[in-house]
Design a protein around this nucleic acid. Structure first.
Length: 900
RNA sequence: GGGUGAUUAGUUCAGAGGUAGAACGCUUCCUUGACACGGAAGAGGCCAGAGGUUCAAUUCCUCUAUCACCCACCA
């Protein structure tokens, strides 16, 4: 069979991982073809598109977890006979990448403007070529089973074509428009941002209470503002229409402080208007309106047809409309305005407050709300379809709770600003005519204005938000707008795996775009996983210095250990706290598995031995039935995407049940102490269990399982890898009355534990053999179990002779004893018996038994319980009381004889 | 202001309507036929608090407290 009977003593990942990855690629095992099975049927498809990482990025734990999850699903489905496509790729990541390259230029004292647009973009492409492969290499190290032939990049030719097509179609449907609106402006990145790209942080600020005198100088209104520099852009004062205090002022005019060229008369005049947005309870009840620099004020301005007076430019400096303030930065202008207000007698008082300030997601610069001409996607109609698709059950959120988050956002969606004033990205396919001003939007580069036929047209300078192209990812990667067969076969994809932080950025937008352009949901299931944090629950970040690099971990512990750790630590709906120590735990598990395999291989013959059902003993029936249970549980848990539970179950089963109990119990048979027939059967069982477990483990720890699969000699010409699609996941073979087998085994384990415990109590050295133990027991099935397992008990507890007697037999002398069931186990210790210690221990035991009996009695005394609880539960309590009573009597007798 | 999640052993977390489990750490012992990256035996928990549903609640429901996170235009 070609078994490798001499595995090295310890498991070392070493070069093994590289070897197997190359093997998988060479065999084309990850390649998805739209093929048919032997009967000419198409195999069911299972497809995932990877969340594309930033092309210049480096693999972090978040990726590692996200990818491991997908790989586990893909590998499992592949073995289950699905035709699996896991489509990989990377994202051009507009702002992020441009920033990185600009930073690099800055070290040479250059800006992108020194290079010019074309040369700069060329430079970014070079950068992409250098770093783009890095993250792909890293994903391979993790073991990702992606179809690399199909790798895509959001800026490659095919995807760019899709982006243009989508833009043009949306424009034609009036779902994309250009307009002058207030947007979020990052003065460092020099670009507009969408609402999502602004992060709000609480920051200390000041409330300035400012006096606005009436036109005639008789009286004033007071307004509270956090941004006095924007007073220069004020065009109105608003009050609530039903405000008793202020409504009589509506229509009057006030003068704007800080304006004019000296003297009260030169101050600009603005009207007092009414608007519902004013909260009469907040601040002074009067609000200054600056439509060009505040989103709310912008809306008020629209409603009241107010002018939009811009006083801050795109660089974050005051412009010509700011009069004497021109050229000052926003910060300087604010300080200066405060001083001037004070000097001019307009400042009543200031108040320290904390308020939310928007920052750029990419560079943390304070974001200015700013009036600007930008492109927008009209989101509402798209979102309505997106909501309906989920309501209709086309898309399932897992865990379900995220559905609510999604609905809430979609129902309150606002138009999406998609133009960015960057150079790195998809250039907007719109051409402006210098002669007639008409905008020509076209999928192919036009040569003339579609309106006046002038050739004097120039393309819009802006590029699209990165997320615009990401939104198309599930279908653009499969060749859309061309009608490719894979698009039809693999779309909608089966599953999307991602973190909750990009539900709005990405998931919601993919749903909207997929429904709009494919007329079908982009994925059937969307699994939202939690975030990876450090062991103290802190977000991992370079500045905190608490980053655990997955590549370091792979180097140190192996990819399998990292993957198993990530899988086993994952739970639905809770962050994962990771430390290198936790990964080490799973490294130890690899070693355990390895050595269990090593033990099996040492003891297996070169031939596969058949299991003789007539030779099966308790432990054999137990491990076979447990293995069967594990197969069933794994299948179910994977279908529920509960990989955490699935991984932990395998861990516990292998370490606890298989190694600690079964392997120990298999030793006498394997060493021929139970006869040749037993030896062969136990060999057959070891073979069977490994043959079942290795494929089950494979999705989590692909490298070591492949290595062991080979060592067991399971590979052959037709079946070169457990990954191959004609090697379905095991269904398990032997069936026993699992409950009965389990219960009997539990009694056996309990007996062993009690005896070992008595040994420990007597301070007997582990290697020392005890002479005799007596088990007094009446229950027939328990007695039968004891008789069957006697040699095993003897071995595991190191007692030369174990006698099973009726429960009523006299208590043996010079023994330690402990109750079990309604019976008792006594271990002969001879002179070593420490009377006082034994009495103390028995008293302890008595107390605990009395307590459980009291609880059960209490229950049984309640008529309702007996009447309404299920029969088996009542029966259980009765057994407990009966056993307990017997135990109490025994312990008391023991105590009496010891003290007497 | 709205929403979501969490609260269980020293720590990090599983868990299920019927007397609480793991890992790491801790104590004692052991190099015994795969594994010291190991084995055996232990200690350690009124499962956040208060109500309710139920024969039975740590588990389901409501409220409270504390801690996270998300969304929202409070100037």
């Amino acid at each position: 069979m070609g078994r490798n009977r001499e595995l090295p003593r310890g498991y070392t990942p070493g070069t093994m991982e590289e070897k197997w990855y190359a093997f998988w690629i060479r065999k084309g095992l990850f390649e998805a073809e739209i093929d048919t099975d032997v009967d000419g049927r198409r195999r069911p498809p299972f497809s995932i598109v990877i969340p594309p990482p930033n092309v210049t990025g480096s693999l972090h734990m978040g990726h590692a977890f996200n990818n491991t999850f997908q790989d586990i699903m893909c590998r499992t489905r592949r073995m289950q006979g699905y035709n699996v496509l896991w489509l990989p790729g990377t994202d051009h990541a507009g702002i992020a990448t441009q920033n990185v390259v600009e930073k690099d230029l800055a070290t040479k004292g250059l800006t992108r403007h020194d290079l010019g647009r074309e040369a700069f973009v060329e430079k970014v492409w070079e950068w992409k070529k250098i770093y783009g492969d890095r993250i792909v290499t890293q994903m391979k190290k993790l073991g990702n089973s992606c179809d690399w032939r199909r790798e895509r990049f959001t800026l490659d030719a095919g995807l760019s074509c899709a982006v243009r097509e989508v833009f043009v179609q949306l424009y034609k449907k009036d779902l994309i428009y250009k307009g002058k609106y207030i947007i979020n402006w990052c003065s460092r990145c020099h670009t507009a941002l969408s609402d999502l790209e602004v992060e709000y942080d609480e920051a200390p600020g000041k409330f300035y209470y400012v006096r606005y005198p009436f036109e005639d100088g008789a009286g004033e209104v007071t307004v509270a503002t956090t941004r006095p520099e924007t007073i220069l852009g004020d065009v109105a004062i608003a009050v609530h229409p039903r405000s008793e205090q202020f409504k009589h002022l509506i229509g009057k005019k006030v003068r704007v402080p800080l304006t004019g060229d000296g003297g009260a008369e030169s101050l600009r005049l603005i009207p007092i208007i009414e608007d519902n947005m004013v909260d009469p309870e907040f601040g002074t009840g009067c609000v200054k309106i600056t439509p060009a620099h505040d989103p709310n004020d912008f809306l008020v301005g629209q409603r009241h047809d107010l002018p939009q007076l811009q006083v801050i430019d795109g660089e974050g400096f005051m412009n010509e409309n700011a009069g004497a303030y021109k050229g000052l930065s926003v910060k300087e202008a604010r300080e200066r305005a405060a001083e001037d207000l004070e000097k001019g007698g307009f400042l009543i008082r200031t108040e320290d407050i904390r308020h939310a300030v928007g920052h750029c997601q990419r560079c943390s610069t304070v974001v200015e709300p700013c009036l600007s001409e930008q492109w927008f996607v009209r989101a509402k109609p798209l979102a309505e379809r997106g909501v309906k698709a989920v309501q209709d059950g086309l898309i399932r959120w897992i865990p379900e709770q995220w559905e609510k988050t999604y609905f809430q956002w979609m129902e309150n969606i606002r138009d999406w600003c998609i133009s960015r004033q960057l150079w790195w990205g998809h250039r907007i396919p719109a051409w402006i005519c210098a002669d007639c001003g008409h905008v020509t939007v076209s999928a192919t580069d036009p040569t003339e204005c579609e309106s006046c036929k002038s050739a004097n047209i120039t393309q819009d300078e802006d590029v699209l938000d990165t997320w615009f192209s990401s939104a198309l990812w599930p279908f653009s990667t499969m060749g859309w707008p061309e009608k490719k067969p894979e698009l039809e076969y693999f779309y909608p994809t089966s599953l999307m795996v991602t973190g909750f932080d990009i539900i709005f950025f990405w998931v919601a937008r993919m749903i909207m775009m997929g429904l709009e352009f494919m007329d079908a949901e982009p994925f059937k299931d969307v699994y939202i996983h939690s975030l990876i944090r450090d062991e103290h629950g802190q977000k991992m970040s370079k500045s905190r210095g608490n980053v655990i690099d997955p590549l370091d971990m792979i180097e140190k512990y192996g990819a399998d250990a990292l993957r198993m750790a990530l899988a086993a630590l994952s739970t639905q709906g809770r962050d994962i706290l990771l430390s290198s120590g936790r990964i080490e735990t799973y490294r130890f598990f690899m070693n355990k598995l390895w050595n269990a395999a090593r033990f099996a291989l040492i003891n297996l013959s070169d031939e596969a031995e058949a299991i003789d059902p007539g030779q099966l003993r308790l432990q054999d029936r137990w491990i076979l039935s447990r293995t069967q249970e594990i197969v069933e549980s794994e299948t179910r848990l994977i279908d529920e995407y509960n990989i955490g539970e699935a991984a932990r179950l395998l861990y516990d089963f292998i370490w606890g049940d298989f190694c600690d109990w079964y392997l120990e119990m298999s030793k006498p048979a394997l060493h021929g102490e139970e006869g040749e027939a037993r030896k062969k059967t136990v060999q057959g069982i070891l073979d069977e269990v490994f043959r079942t477990l290795l494929p089950l483990l494979h999705p989590y720890i692909p490298f070591v399982t492949e290595e062991l699969w080979e060592a067991f000699g399971y590979s052959n010409e037709e079946r070169e890898s457990i990954m191959q699609t004609d090697w379905p996941l095991p269904k398990g073979g032997y069936r026993f009355d699992a409950a009965e087998v389990r219960e009997t085994m539990r009694n056996f384990q309990e007996t062993v534990r009690v005896l070992r415990n008595l040994r420990a109590e007597a301070h007997v050295a582990p290697q020392q053999w005890m002479n005799k133990a007596v088990i007094r027991m009446d229950r027939p099935e328990f007695v039968a179990m004891l008789k069957e397992t006697l040699p095993m008990t003897t071995l595991l507890c190191r007692v030369k002779e174990i006698e099973v007697l009726p429960a009523s037999s006299p208590r043996p002398h010079a023994s330690l004893s402990s109750v079990i069931g309604e019976g008792e186990i006594s271990l002969h210790v001879g002179d070593v018996l420490d009377l006082d210690a034994e009495i103390a221990r028995l008293k302890q035991e008595l107390l605990s038994v009395e307590k459980t009996v009291a609880v059960s009695r209490g229950r049984l005394e309640k008529p309702d319980f007996v009447a309404r609880a299920p029969q088996e539960v009542v029966e259980k309590e009765r057994t407990r009381v009966a056993e307990g009573a017997a135990q109490i009597t025994r312990i008391q007798e023991n105590l009496k004889s010891l003290s007497g």
